[in-house]
Design a protein around this nucleic acid. Structure first.
Lengths: 193, 193
DNA sequence: CGTTTATACGGAGGATGCCTCCGTTTATCA
DNA sequence: TGATAAACGGAGGCATCCTCCGTATAAACG
């Protein structure tokens, strides 16, 4: 019981937080470059920590994938928040959508692994869906209130469209194509009177 | 030059063909059960061949994935061909679509790996797209000619719809859902006058 | 047929990666 | 500042990867 009371009080060690973040950053780099099967020891090396540290924070490869993914989803949320200060609501939306495409593009080799994790952990799917929908909603609502875009398109619609577009992942030059389609799409969202 | 002239003439050894097929069959089984990361030596064991034989036929894990996938696409083509003798064109189409869903369902763990291979090898994407489109087209054309289904839906549309449906791979019970949607879809294809 | 020869086979073994375990180090708290 | 819980690094045991080569055998040829 003495241990129990301390569990709550003691704050996590600073080096633990720092190392956790270093590993996540390294994982993003290494997996993006070498694909989902890249060596975890390479990740530890890149992060400048021991292999034991990596495994303590992320017991399985999937745990690491998941954490990297969550981190990026949160970064997209933060970007949406930051874009509230962008003068033009429409450009803010466009900017965010483009960033999302880049986000997908970076993870060439990771998408596959993420699909596995998503399958195994539907809570993660719900989590990311909620975050992304909320981000889009904030951006969309502002644009609608400003009278810049039509009001009959929901955040869910937009997310679905985005995912669908990014799914044509095979053709070469897909990224350019999606960016073009996004531009057309955003233009189409505008009220034209 | 003597070797060069023989390269063309000599036919492949029978045991080589047999073993290649055994490995593919084993790979299908093992990967379906154990996911894309399953041990290649387990595949060799299951196939009843040496590990060296496996590697000679398929130098990389991706080569093996690709070959398994190609084989299954071809089997879907053959199924489409066989279904030409099914009395009702609409039921033939429905049957084929349902088989495709099952095909996807079997490969839970493989889809991820396939996504990687598809990315790396766009020829494979073109190959499978062509085969699948052709299969659908044959089935669809027969149904249209029989006057059973509307004529303003292309094979490409149908394939896209199919892929999109199967992409909701996360929710539990997706398979039942897709099968239900397919039924609705096929019913919708019927001419109603 | 029997011989020759290209081709395929199996599996040993070195290299690499996975993951656990534990002695050492360090941040927190009294 | 000392005690101690928490985190660290990396050695080492085990599994898998993949290459290499001696052996076996199917096809070709006389």
């Amino acid at each position: 019981m003495s241990t129990k009371s301390q569990e709550r009080l003691r704050k996590p060690r600073a080096d633990a937080l720092r190392n956790r973040d270093r590993v996540l950053e390294a994982a993003k780099t290494v997996f993006s470059a070498g694909g989902a099967g890249a060596s975890l020891e390479a990740v530890a090396r890149q992060a400048g920590v021991g292999i034991g540290t990596l495994y303590r924070h992320f017991p399985t490869r999937e745990d690491l994938f998941e954490a990297v993914y969550r981190r990026e989803v949160e970064q997209l949320s933060e970007l949406a928040e930051a874009l509230k200060s962008e003068p033009s609501p429409v450009e803010a939306l466009r900017h965010w959508l483009r960033s999302t495409v880049q986000f997908v593009a970076t993870k060439k080799g990771m998408m596959a692994a993420l699909a596995i994790v998503m399958n195994a952990n539907s809570e993660l799917a719900a989590y990311s869906h909620a975050h992304l929908t909320a981000s889009i909603n904030a951006l969309l609502a502002r644009a609608v209130e400003a009278g810049d875009v039509r009001s009959d398109v929901t955040a869910d619609d937009l997310l679905r469209a985005l995912i669908g577009m990014c799914y044509m992942h095979d053709q070469t030059g897909w990224q350019q194509s999606v960016l073009r389609l996004l531009d057309v799409f955003v233009d189409g969202l505008r009220v034209t009177n």
